[in-house]
């Protein structure tokens, strides 16, 4: 359905995304994980043809067999909302505070599908029911500030579904929500993807949500896809030192339970775009680093679970 080949998003010499390739089919559920500043959102924006003008895009984007010029608005516009739609982290910021929720949700149906107002209202009520919005008739007339965070995120999901997209990209959809609300929203996204055979890309730094919701996973660090494979297998047996580090640093309720024990960490923090090492992006923070890691970019190597890009794996070691 959508395919990226050697996609890079760059700002001068700095790469926000480097050489990313992936392909998504109907019904796929792909998780993208990594820390802030690792290129997750930029990868998503490039799938929407929405990379900011200041950045250069190279590589190929193919949508339903057609090559898409990365920033030709007229080529992308007919596909947005219909082929793919996106939901964002902060639902309050994505909804117009001065417009009634009904009007906002109906807009794409009227613009892209040419529905009459009556048909659009009917369809909106159906979508509200499908996304679990309580009191749908009342919501139509309300303003965003009158809804809770979880209900707002459901409205955004309904809005994204307005034109039956084949692909839904959710960028940190639950980060601003409480833990148990976030659980329900994650489950809703999975249910919608199953019922509609809609592809779902879930971008999150919450490994738990990705583990629960997705079939496949991409782990990004410093703009590179460092590991990929089936979600359950990769999280159970991570091959890349970064994936291992991320999983290790996660506080776990069943282990900790008031014992006040130190958590394993990844030393340092994600460097800025211009300070990334040329070779393996993870060098400098890696526990199994070798002298040439900072200089040469590791190739993707097949692992038991999928693929990972690490020099340790290539030389036949088992990464630790």
């Amino acid at each position: 359905m959508i395919e990226l080949k050697n996609l890079s998003v760059t700002l001068g010499a700095a790469a926000a995304v480097r050489d990313a390739s992936l392909s998504i089919q109907a019904g796929d559920r792909l998780g993208v994980v990594g820390e802030s500043g690792c290129g997750k959102s930029m990868l998503a924006l490039s799938m929407m043809g929405m990379v900011p003008d200041a950045l250069a895009v190279s590589g190929q984007i193919t949508l339903n067999g057609t090559a898409m010029p990365p920033r030709d608005e007229t080529a992308w516009r007919p596909h947005r909302a219909r082929s793919m739609a996106m939901i964002f982290q902060e639902p309050m910021a994505a909804l117009n505070p001065l417009r009634r929720i009904g009007d906002t949700v109906m807009e794409p149906m009227r613009v892209h599908l040419g529905l009459s107002r009556e048909d659009a209202i009917k369809r909106t009520l159906d979508l509200f029911a499908e996304t679990g919005i309580r009191d749908p008739e009342l919501r139509l007339r309300q303003y965003p500030h009158q809804l809770s965070g979880g209900q707002r995120q459901r409205v955004l999901i309904a809005l994204a579904l307005a034109c039956d997209p084949a692909l839904l990209i959710a960028d940190e959809p639950t980060t601003a929500l409480d833990a148990n609300v976030s659980l329900r929203i994650t489950d809703l996204l999975v249910r919608l993807s199953r019922q509609r055979n809609m592809a779902l890309v879930l971008i999150s730094h919450d490994l738990g949500a990705v583990a629960r919701a997705t079939k496949d996973i991409l782990v990004m660090y410093g703009g590179d896809i460092v590991e990929r494979g089936p979600t359950a297998a990769v999280l159970a047996h991570p091959a890349h030192p970064y994936t291992k580090g991320l999983l290790g640093a996660r506080p776990r309720i069943e282990q900790a339970a008031g014992k006040r024990r130190h958590l394993p960490t990844i030393p340092g923090s994600v460097p800025g775009l211009f300070d990334l090492p040329k070779g393996c992006r993870f060098s400098g923070r890696c526990s199994v680093e070798m002298p040439h890691c900072a200089r040469s970019k590791p190739e993707n190597v097949n692992t038991e679970q999928g693929q990972a890009a690490c020099h340790q794996l290539k030389e036949g070691h088992n990464g630790g």
């Binding site: 490994l207 640093a249 994600v270």
Partner: peptide, 14 residues
Amino acid sequence: LDVSVQAQILNLLM
């Protein structure tokens, strides 16, 4: 904070 940084800060607090 991101998980890895979160772990660092929790360790610092401990």
